[in-house]
Amino acid sequence: MTKISVNKKVFETDSDPSTPMLWVLRDEFGLTGTKFGCGIAQCGSCTIHVDGEARRSCVTPISAVVGKEVTTIEGLSPDSSHPLQKAWIAEDAPQCGYCQSGQIMAAAAMLKKTPKPTDADIDQAMNGIICRCGTYNRVRAAIKLAAMNGGK
């Protein structure tokens, strides 16, 4: 039995240590906000934080997060009050919404390190997250809005 801390709560799993976090989160812990998009770290829909760093949960085995703190979209804020979540709503960034957990988690990790990101910083942090609906410009605008509001 492996113990994993997710969103400041301890979960247990008896899955093989090589199992990707994505499927443990989704199918065992019921945290389905983290999405499956490609399975090969190409699209970023599955982005989570491991000790505050953005990680692709589809290629992160559970063995790699033991003893660390995992944060998923459900744990970003208790009530959707993170400045990025508010900015996302203000810009009406989501369309289908499927990639947006990954977009927000990637942006949140960036803002922690770079509270006032330039366009180049945003490109660098966000170009790993694919959106087929094409919300990129609104995502960029929302990140800037959140940064302006002192988002971390």
């Binding site: 979209i73 959707s80 990025l84 979540q85 996302w88 709503i89 960034a93 947006q100 957990s101």
Partner: peptide, 8 residues
């Protein structure tokens, strides 16, 4: 639908 798409 935006609120439900920013918190998973």
């Amino acid at each position: 639908d935006s609120p439900s798409k920013v918190n998973g």
